[in-house]
């Protein structure tokens, strides 16, 4: 097997405990309408014995109602279905202490969000926004969220399904893993820069080139997984590590990746900007306090 692209469900079965995946059921919620958001697969499994919610894309599904949805694209129904699965996860563990909230595993192989006219008329941006907010809420509530990029993690679809996780692991580029906003050839065309020049520049600056290794350097991916066979053990290890990190209050998720980006030397300007602004605000903050106080 030299790639998992288009095989999110295969990857899912490889990662969770064998035969444990129960599709369309998360906590008390059942997703009974099979035709609803078929591009999104949600359900419950066990991972090393722990109950986990799993969310993936099905590259083989085609949404009859919204024909722009195929090949793993996240459409409006898919976005809201994924968001519902997260809210159902939150509800299922509402009374559990933060340390016992069930993990959420995101299997990431999606080429984009629904790009159609009906989607714009009804607001595709809300569907993906809704899913991101749900994940951010679950992460803050204590659920360990691990995204495993096993194929395509493209632009807005990666923002939607992946970048709100606590930690992101990605299969090595040799398995065809794609993480980018746009391929370098398209970037080259749009910003009118010679492709050879861009390729040369990307050796020293990971900020625009496509691929998991560049996102790793930027702190956008915590770990690159060297072999497909390692996926399961890496996800299990990351969940365990997250339990510890979250209990200690360590930064995870987008904030954690910003810290990592600086530590790995990929995004060093970001903390400088933040520090400058904090210092400047501190100098004037008194002007903005309640005057009566």
């Amino acid at each position: 097997m030299d790639t998992l692209i288009g095989q999110g469900l295969v990857a899912l079965e490889m990662i969770v405990d064998p035969g444990s995946f129960a599709r369309d059921r998360v906590g008390a919620k059942e997703f009974t309408d099979e035709s609803y958001g078929p591009g999104a697969v949600v359900g419950t499994a066990t991972l090393d014995g722990q109950t986990v919610t799993v969310i993936a894309s099905d590259a083989e599904a085609f949404n009859e109602k919204f024909p722009v949805v195929y090949a793993g694209i996240i459409g409006m129904e898919e976005g809201y279905k994924m968001a519902s699965a997260v809210y159902a996860t939150l509800a299922a563990d509402r009374d559990a202490p933060a340390s016992a909230k069930r993990p959420i595993v995101l299997i990431v192989d999606t080429p984009g969000n629904g790009p159609g006219k009906v989607e714009e008329i009804f607001g595709m941006n809300k569907a993906t926004g809704a899913y991101q907010l749900a994940l951010a809420e679950a992460r803050a509530a204590g659920h360990p969220i691990v995204a495993a990029v096993i194929g395509r993690a493209i632009s807005g679809a990666f923002l939607c399904h992946g970048l709100q996780a606590d930690r992101i692991v990605a299969l090595d580029a040799k398995f065809g893993t794609m993480i980018h906003v746009m391929p370098l050839t398209s970037v080259s065309r749009i910003i009118k820069k010679n492709i050879e020049v861009l390729e040369e520049l990307s050796k020293s600056n990971p900020v625009f080139a496509a691929g998991p290794q560049f996102f790793h350097k930027l702190g956008g991916v915590e770990e690159v997984v060297p072999e497909i066979a390692d996926l399961r053990s890496v996800v299990i290890r990351q969940v365990a590590a997250l339990r510890v990190a979250k209990a200690k209050g360590e930064a995870t998720g987008p904030v954690g990746r910003a810290v990592l980006g600086a530590a790995r030397g990929g995004r060093v300007t970001r903390p400088q900007v933040a520090a400058k602004m904090a210092a400047e605000f501190a100098a004037v903050a008194d002007k903005y306090r309640p005057q009566s106080a």
């Binding site: 907010l133 803050a140 990666f158 923002l159 709100q164 980018h180 906003v181 625009f208 995004r267």
Partner: peptide, 26 residues
């Protein structure tokens, strides 16, 4: 229009941070 292609990866990661900041602001 969203992400600046000249520094697309950093721009994308920044979007995720803003989204997360919104949820923290709730």
């Amino acid at each position: 229009g969203g992400v600046r292609l000249h520094e697309s990866n950093a721009g994308l990661l920044a979007h995720a941070e803003v989204m997360d900041a919104f949820q923290r602001a709730r």
